Simulated assay, not measured.
Amino acid sequence: MDTPQEKPHAGPRPAALLGPVEIRQLAEELDITPTKKLGQNFVHDPNTVRRIVSAAAATDGDDVIEVGPGLGSLTLALLDTVRSVTAVEIDPRLAERLPRTVADRAPDHADRLNLLRQDALTVLPADLRAAGAPEPTALVANLPYNVSVPVLLHLLAEFPTITRVLVMVQAEVADRLAAAPGSKIYGVPSVKAAFYGTVRRAGSIGKNVFWPAPKIDSGLVRIDRFPGGEEPWPIDARTRAAVFPLVDAAFAQRRKTLRAALSGHYGSGAAAEDALRAAHIDPGLRGEKLGVADFVRLAGVVR
């Protein structure tokens, strides 16, 4: 008599990702009309969110912080892959609905979700601890376009545990973040992002994967933070406080030479020239010619 064969143990079921129909149904249920003020454009293409997770090189060892999860498109894709997702949502209706969406569409992964109902620009490590959420190892998000750069820089500053970033932003902003010294679009965001690690463009995203479709294309930006102990300069608050005001001053009036642009920072043009020459930087250059290492050297920061 044949012995009944045991069925192999089934693993967790993958999340049911959101498509255009589901996105519209959820928005209608919540009486939500995407607002420009909050930078809301909801991704409705499952292939796009899978692509973002792949570009982030997310693994089951990652604890991800996601800003602006909206209706949950990217959240569901992340929950399929990573150890945990801490979603930061400012819109109370979206924040209230997200856990139910996850429970409905990714029931086997619902325990991986943590939710913070607040402005991402105010999130601190203490907020995650209070919510029982782990320190993030990665930032993966479709950032609200109106505050994308401030949110990115805030989270990099507050969470040194973030070793990897993959964010979707306006194409123009993506280009600026990844720009190299000497280019016309190189500026403050370029230098400040490069302060933390290696920045590169990781792809382009068209308009039609969103609802409503924005008027411009989007871009993916990847940042790999310098490995701990191998940073070319100290990545800490003291260094940041010394370097970032120099960056702001150097680009405040792009056409000015560094001697002129930094005269206010140092108290006079002569003092600015002395500081620049001491750092082996030509006072006649403009800020766009300096890399982040030059600004660090000018700030006098050493290990």
Rank of each mutant, 00 (worst) to 15 (best):
R254P: 07
F42E: 01
P69I: 09
R254F: 09
L124P: 00
R24F: 00
E89A: 08
V149I: 11
A250L: 03
G300A: 10
G300R: 11
P125V: 03
T257W: 09
R222T: 12
T81L: 05
F195K: 03
L76D: 03
D236E: 11
L166D: 07
S263T: 04
G206N: 11
L76N: 09
Y145C: 11
A138C: 11
G11M: 08
R51M: 15
P4R: 12
K289Q: 14
V199W: 06
D175I: 00
F195N: 06
A77V: 07
P181H: 11
L17S: 01
I216V: 15
I185S: 08
K215V: 02
H9Q: 14
D248V: 04
A242Q: 10
A27G: 09
G264K: 09
N208W: 01
Y196D: 02
V302W: 10
R13I: 00
L124R: 15
R93G: 02
A10E: 14
P99Y: 11
I90S: 12
I281K: 10
A194Y: 00
A250W: 04
E96W: 07
D91Q: 02
I162Y: 12
P150W: 11
A120H: 13
W211Q: 09
R50T: 07
G284L: 10
R117T: 14
S54D: 15
R51E: 13
A77M: 06
V302H: 15
E96G: 02
L76M: 04
R254H: 04
P34E: 04
R117S: 13
G68V: 03
R286M: 06
S84Y: 06
L124C: 08
L153H: 13
D104G: 01
L166C: 15
G229S: 14
K256T: 04
I65W: 11
K7S: 13
G287P: 05
